[in-house]
């Protein structure tokens, strides 16, 4: 992340120097900072709403029931997470929300899952294998119905806005499988094994 972040800024400043777009770059820096805060504040409402609802579902045992249903899959995806850990419940809800295309619900539930995974982490500054797998899963989009783009197609006068659903499901299946398998593969490489906060083997 360090390298990526610095390269983005370096490339921006270098390009701006050559093309004379420095004033735009300067303006963009301040604008982005403001919109980042607005975005975070905007998230708070959805976060409170869905984490409140999740707590009710948790107290009623609904989350645990869902996690139990997905246990075989989770045992393979997140072998380090104990089978009754609350992280798995939050992950299950996050995946459900993602599949339904409920982005507003998926983010709060995903962040809740990260907090639960962090309770299992021995080094609070370094990502565990489970976190990396979860991130790969999340950033490869598991959504079944791309509602936003279908809406945009409808608004632009498409004859059949939803005709892309099957293609999108097929493509997203490929991207999710590759993301998860590569997360698993990278975790087994010596370089990433060395940095694993739980030391590779359960202690």
């Amino acid at each position: 992340m360090n390298i990526v972040w610095l390269s983005l800024i370096l490339l921006a400043v270098l390009t701006a120097a050559f093309r004379g777009t420095m004033s735009e770059v300067s303006k963009a820096a301040f604008q982005s900072a403001t919109s980042a805060v607005e975005l975070s504040i905007g998230l708070i409402g959805a976060m409170a709403l869905f984490l409140g609802l999740m707590r009710i579902a948790q107290d009623a045992g609904l989350v645990q029931a869902l996690a139990k249903l997905l246990r075989p899959l989770f045992r393979w995806l997140f072998p380090e997470v104990p089978k009754d850990h609350p992280a798995l419940g939050a992950i299950a809800l996050n995946m459900g929300a993602n599949m339904l295309g409920l982005g507003n619900a998926a983010t709060p539930l995903g962040l809740k899952a990260m907090q639960e995974l962090q309770t299992l982490n021995k080094d609070q500054e370094t990502a565990t294998n489970a976190m990396c797998t979860f991130l790969a899963l999340n950033s490869s989009s598991v959504q079944l119905i791309p509602a936003v783009v279908i809406g945009l197609r409808a608004a632009s006068g498409s004859k059949n806005p939803s005709e892309i659903i099957i293609a999108a499901i097929l493509a997203t299946t490929c991207s999710t499988l590759v993301a998860v398998f590569s997360a698993k593969f990278f975790a087994s490489l010596p370089y990433f094994k060395k940095s694993n906060p739980s030391g590779g083997d359960p202690k």
């Binding site: 609070q124 990502a127 997360a183 975790a187």
Partner: peptide
């Protein structure tokens, strides 16, 4: 969760 080292994510 203030994780800085994101490894292979």
């Amino acid at each position: 969760i203030a994780v800085r080292k994101t490894r292979h994510a």
